[in-house]
Amino acid sequence: MDDFLHRFKVAATLYNSVDDAGVTSFAASALYRIVHEALTNVTRHAQASEAVVKVSSDADTCRIRIEDNGRGTVIDDAGKPDSFGLLGMGERVRQLNDTLTIDSVPGKGFRITARIPLNAIRPDAKPPV
């Protein structure tokens, strides 16, 4: 986030309530890449002035949500075959055993949510019941 704040003219805020102790290096890299790509998309496409990254967890799930106040898009356009950033984010989330949700409306910003089982990022976490 510090790098993003210094390089781009988008106000960005990070809310992180997850302790990263015990997160595997594979998962840490994948989660970093998801957030990095989402923020890259904000700077390239959103025409946003603000972005928020929220990282939270409950008993069995880690959630990452990246949202902006930009121009948004029609969801069908976001999933075009040449949307390599979104495809890469989706693949990283699938490697961690879950899915990526995209929510956007033209003129109402863009939201990406990844929900990942804790046991996919922390080997010591109990599997979901």
Rank of each mutant, 00 (worst) to 15 (best):
I102S: 03
T101G: 09
T99A: 11
S104G: 13
R92C: 06
Q95D: 03
T99R: 10
T99C: 09
L100W: 07
A78H: 08
E91S: 13
T101L: 15
F84N: 01
V93H: 07
R92V: 00
K80V: 06
L96I: 13
Q95N: 03
D98K: 05
F84S: 04
D82I: 06
T113Q: 05
R92Q: 02
S83G: 10
I112A: 04
L100G: 06
G85L: 02
G90A: 12
T99M: 08
I112H: 03
I102A: 02
G88W: 01
D103S: 12
P81F: 15
G79Y: 08
G107C: 13
P106I: 03
N97A: 06
E91P: 00
T113Y: 01
L100S: 03
L96G: 02
T99Q: 09
G88Y: 10
E91T: 08
N97R: 15
G88C: 11
R94V: 10
R94F: 01
L100H: 08
E91A: 11
P106V: 13
G88F: 07
V93T: 15
G85F: 02
V93C: 08
R111F: 00
S104K: 11
R94W: 05
K80D: 13
K80S: 09
F84M: 02
R94Q: 13
L87M: 10
Q95I: 00
A78I: 15
A78C: 08
G79Q: 10
M89S: 04
G85V: 02
T101C: 05
